[in-house]
Nucleic acid binder design. Sequence first.
RNA 1: GCCGGCGUAGCUCAAUGGUAGAGCACCUGUUUUGUAAACAGGCGGUUGCGGGUUCGAAUCCCACCGCCGGCUCCA
Length: 612
Amino acid sequence: MRLVRISSLLSPAMPMSPLEELRHSGSHILATAVLRLFPEAKLDIGPPTDTGFYYDFDLEHKFTAEDLVKIEAEMKKVAEENQPFYRKEVSREEAAEIIRSRGQELYKLGRLADIPAGEQISFYQNGEFMDLCAGTHVRYSSKLKAFKLLSIAGAYHRGDEKNKQLQRIYGTAFPTKEELAQHLDNLEQAKARDHRKLGKELELFVFDADDVGPGLPLWLPKGTVLIEELEKLAKETEFAAGYQRVRTPHIAREKLYLTSGHLPYYADSMFPPMELKEGASAQPEATGEKYYLKAMNCPHHHKLFGALPRSYRDLPLRLAEYGTCYRYEQSGELLGLMRVRSMQMNDAHIYCTEEQFAAEFRAVNEMYLKYFKIFGLGKYQMRFSTHDPAQLGKKFVDQPELWKKTEDMVRRVLVESGINFVEVANEAAFYGPKIDVQVWSIIGREFTIATNQVDFAVPARFGLEYVTAENTKATPLCIHRAPLGTHERFIGFLIEHFAGDFPVWLAPEQVRLVPISEKQLDYGRALRDTLHAAGVRVTLDEHNDKLGAKIRRGELDKVPYTLVLGGKEAEAQAVSVRSRAKGDEGVQPFAHYLERLKAEIATRALPEKKKT
RNA sequence: GCCGGCGUAGCUCAAUGGUAGAGCACCUGUUUUGUAAACAGGCGGUUGCGGGUUCGAAUCCCACCGCCGGCUCCA
């Protein structure tokens, strides 16, 4: 066995950043402490993460919140013991022997087997603890000064739900106590932006899991404004881009999804079928025919393409519909508006020739970027998902040449458009490659906010054809695209993105009129009627309260503009403008304010940075 | 779906086996208000649902439903 001091290492297998090293060592120190308190615990793995670290344990005893406190205290002791970390490079046989001697063969031997032949196998040791580990680590356990254990969670061994579920302890660590405190404070503040909390406070939507059902949001009037403004934007944008709107029912016969090929792939995430029983009184002719709630709009749209004879002159044909779809998501996966069971897709299907594909695909990507600019959305990641040849015929349709061809086309468009993207294998749709746009919710969870997919398989299954210029028949390619994803998720995301401080064009209530006393009520009513007639969403605060209380209500309701109306203003046909961004802006003529407001709405201006 | 935690008034939370309570919101009255909370009174709960233990259950036990933190999955 070769024993090396860390300081003398020239090139550890996978050098980590100093922060990753600290957190990685945090997870080893966590395991050290757990084994002291629960020697029978079996270890799996404990890597650093973007925000901290975790370690997975298999243990009969269920960790409790009190255990976390004790473990954290023990970790503190380990840190204070100032244990040096040692790296030991060993042979495969020696490694297995070490694992057995420590009674950790249950998971560690499997982890050892994962290490490819020829790669250096190493252990890291601190104090009495030793773990199979590529490294790297801090030099002394005392480096771990600012850390905190955060939560206990179940996690499947190797992330596979067929495997045993282990207990995962999450924690975080920072170089300094100040940074840790800042991080914990950020977590607290993130909770205030959580769309579930704001949705309730701002009266945007509700869930009634008992009577309506889990994952089925009910939109209150204020939330409905958000959806409809979003749709208005989408309709304008798509009209300009040559899309045509269509409408299709929410249900369809089983046959439609057998034709599309969705049922074998998606049956589990569809609501169970409605079955019309033979002899049922209302439907005497029914003979066990099944109807499904639609989980996607494409089969219906394919039917619309096929409904009329199509020529190459009709292409590209762009059919748009914000159709409501229903997916039976597993109960544990529901999350506010981000993951629901009824959703409106910002959907359209573009049927085109191979020659037209690049331009169409590119135009769709540009539409994404245009939307993201309007919303000031800067932090996202484009993910290009391709197929895995090993899964052909299982997860992906078995047409290897078409996969290659379309994936090459997509990659070329992305590169030519200069779009930054990451490529991930084995994540494509079953009918073709796709581009997803990933964003992160305020609580750090990753979501696909938009998607753009190529379909080279399903149009053929529907027998879709067009007549070419040479008077032959050809099958169109189909682009499925939803730049605003589903309106539920997009709005959930926007609520967090803006922290409820929506741009004026989106704000459910754009202007709040606040008379100082009863004496200005008539003036207030007149302004309200004028603004309303101008298409502005306005309310008049008629409560019998002091001005401060009314202002406060306006702030809490996150209304962009509060107009204070006193005697002077009524006299001069003026308003005292208080904006959410700048606070008290002083008195100005009402006509002047109205013009400014209309312009701000018409240009869909982003909110100005809020003063602190 | 799985592991763990939690379900009390519209909201935020008290009440650890002995009469369910507070603040805010809402309604009424007084006050007539100048840029983030005037004062007083009133309304409001079979403690998620169903069983069980007990003289007695919000509280203890069981099952179900839901929510939350993760895992898995996904727009």
